[in-house]
Design a protein around this nucleic acid. Sequence first.
DNA 1: TGGGATTGCGCAATAG
DNA 2: ACTATTGCGCAATCCC
Lengths: 162, 162
Amino acid sequence: MSKQPQQKLNSTEQNGVSVIQSQAHSSVVNSAGATAGLQQVPQLVPVSPGGGGKATSPSKMKKSMLDKDSDEYRQRRERNNLAVKKSRMRSKQKAQDTQQRVNELKEENERLEAKIKLLSKELSVLKDLFLEHAHNLADNVQPATAASVAPGDHCNTNNNSQ
Amino acid sequence: MSKQPQQKLNSTEQNGVSVIQSQAHSSVVNSAGATAGLQQVPQLVPVSPGGGGKATSPSKMKKSMLDKDSDEYRQRRERNNLAVKKSRMRSKQKAQDTQQRVNELKEENERLEAKIKLLSKELSVLKDLFLEHAHNLADNVQPATAASVAPGDHCNTNNNSQ
DNA sequence: TGGGATTGCGCAATAG
DNA sequence: ACTATTGCGCAATCCC
């Protein structure tokens, strides 16, 4: 992910077909970039190199790359368009999934947070109880210990939901 | 959001007119962006709308909308291209942020999970301690009764002693 | 050398 | 009349 190839491509693109470009630009243009600007491809079809041009596959003719009339060109384009569509679809789906994930994680977080709260409370209660007992023991070694236990659910042994 | 008006616009570009757009004025184009390939083939200017046309703004002539030579057209395009770029940038940024959010939430989750584990353990220890204590009390007070506490029912509170 | 996958870009339609 | 979004096709790369 994350690449940025496209950049100012570099020139040397003269396949032969000519792009008509007039004018010599003035600016400094490329240091890295330029060339660009013009690539308008007219649709001239270079009649086929050498005369015997094989339509597809021959060898060196890069010509077919720009020959918009070429059947091969159209096929390539179509395939690419398809691939592009597919890729974008995935990309979108992924983004959506990621968003969904965020929501799920948020929920999970709340759940955990709630659980922590509960456990903390439980712990707190238990600790208090414990301390109380300790005090009682300290105060009177063996009196009526029962009194210290307040009515309630101190002994909840408990719930481990989920 | 989500509409799909765009028609399939298909291939074979336009009419077949060819002519290149000479790109007469070359506005520096790349300042940073560069723009490399041009694409679609435009061309051919419909001689001026209605004949005397005002280039911009008049009223209804939708012509200007298609007049690729129009200065106004170019301006609109340029502005839109800018907006598009901006929009895409944001979109990408957002996606990235969302991903980041996922990571953060995951971390947070682990943190919480760990905390829960810790609290649970603490709770467990405390409970055991508590029970042990209870037993001790029971033993001391009335050793005989202690036996009555069967495993499983440890929490039978202690206040029934005596 | 080939072919799908990605990505930046510009266009046009259209939402806001 | 504008900008923001979005689907789309092109071309350059990337990546097997």
